[in-house]
Design a protein around this nucleic acid. Structure first.
Lengths: 267, 267
DNA sequence: CGGAGGTTTGAGAGGCGTCAACCTCCGTGG
DNA sequence: CCACGGAGGTTGACGCCTCTCAAACCTCCG
């Protein structure tokens, strides 16, 4: 008997046997992009694995970087400070994201990185990445591609902040996280964990904590979604996407492997 | 006798002799990143050069891409449409920018690209780029790096929209373009051309045209800058940067070659 | 049990949007 | 030569969305 939870995790479970660290990297983005050999190269070249508690700083703006980290478990965020010390989140990362791979070609970051909940990250030495990119042109383009997914999400965040009201911004934020977590098997039927507070959401959406609270109540009363103590439940995916003007194409999702699994294991 | 204009254009003039199309690519971003040979590879592999008039669409969201374009002259913008047809600009590109290089690893764009004024672009076939990246790992990393500059600018736009008021947003926008145009020799002493209308600025900064008009008047009356018919003049660079909370480090500017020129040719 | 951080709600203020009018500029065509 | 129309620029009146300030309550944890 297969319950829903194990069903959803099946493709990752397959991968996690041989690739416990990199199994979620680019999972759900289209199967052919990364060959098995290439994934093995990534798995074998991890320098070390680090576990860090909640609300810790991982990288500071401007400091020279010698390694980049792939997020294995947990959630981290990238953010910038304004003059008064308020933060603007510029991205939230979920397991499978190569968080600061972009620090490899650039050598430093223009922002800070911090953990949200407790995390596990796999570290890659930049010298190792140089060697990998010297030997594997196709893998290099795939790594490049993965950093461009971040850029695509950045653009969508610009749209969110520039064109949407408070309700649309929050709705859009949750829609994006829902799709991304679905791709790596960490969301199902619109339900997922997200260790954020209301002030965190405010920093992500260019609002104040007080107003986030009011808008969340509004979304709840419209039967679109609920958010309580880090647990998200989207009740009306289409309705929420409509409020958000959300179209997921920018995430380059290809969920065919999930439907394959579902077809192979009919409920 | 060397006047200011020719002085500022000198480093580009040097490059433009052997590299009329690619001379401005990454100009001002650090000298050692691109070797002469690598720049020659880029110069020699241009498929064709295209000239397009003002306010034309160059690429549409979602269409399959077979080439990418390096902007040689003029200005283009990338933007997304909301439900009511209003646009959100997600970037403005100046000469030397490899506008949609990120479409090479991804195969399609999640937004539209259009010209502002008349432009000249150099096209690269994606097959050619594949061949180049198969043979030149270091050049590949530099190309990768150039797309990450866009991502860094995206993040700064997120900050701008999320944390700044209307005056700060406009100030930040002009500060960024001033630095970027200085790097490629198209701005001097805070003066440069920018073929945008006030509604365009509104679409870049998440405002309305009416409000942009009021804020521009305000900035003018505070003796910070003027903007009239596509001509920008920043009167108080430090003051404008203060309003914008602008720090240019995210642009990875290295203007040492400019100071070298100035030192070699004292006024 | 006390304190810190998060959540919730209220009242009032202000920044920016909306609507509207009028202007200049400029290309088009009678 | 002038009439015309359209796009952009400018300004005013008004309204709403979101911020600010404030206070109460709640949970968690040391």
């Amino acid at each position: 008997m297969i319950n829903n939870a194990s069903l959803a995790a099946a493709p990752y479970a397959d991968m996690s046997v041989r690739h416990p660290l990199t199994g979620r990297f680019l999972l759900g983005r289209g199967r052919e992009r990364l060959t098995l050999e290439e994934r093995q190269v990534l798995e074998d070249n991890v320098l070390s694995v680090k576990e860090v508690g909640a609300r810790q700083t991982l990288v500071r703006r401007g400091e020279p970087l010698e390694h980049s980290m792939l997020l294995v478990e947990g959630y981290v965020t990238r953010f910038m400070d304004d003059r008064e010390g308020y933060r603007q989140l510029v991205s939230v990362h979920v397991p499978g994201d190569f968080v600061d791979l972009h620090g490899f070609p650039t050598g430093r970051l223009d922002h800070d990185i911090g953990t949200l909940g407790p995390v596990k990250v796999a570290l890659y030495d930049h010298q190792t990445l140089t060697a990998i990119t010297n030997q594997h042109p196709h893998l290099t383009r795939v790594l490049w591609y993965s950093t461009l997914l971040d850029a695509a999400m950045h653009r969508e965040w610009i749209f969110r902040l520039g064109r949407l009201g408070a309700d649309g911004r929050l709705a859009h934020f949750f829609c994006e996280l829902n799709v991304r977590l679905e791709m790596v098997g960490l969301a199902e039927n619109g339900r997922f964990e997200l260790p954020l507070t209301q002030p965190d959401l405010a920093e992500a959406c260019g609002l104040t904590g007080v107003h986030v609270n009011r808008v969340l109540r509004d979304l709840r009363e419209r039967n679109l979604m609920t958010f309580r103590s880090g647990q998200v439940e989207i009740l009306d995916v289409a309705g929420l996407a409509s409020v958000a003007e959300f179209e997921s194409d920018y995430l380059y999702a290809d969920m065919s492997h999930w439907t394959t699994v579902r077809a192979a294991h009919p409920i």
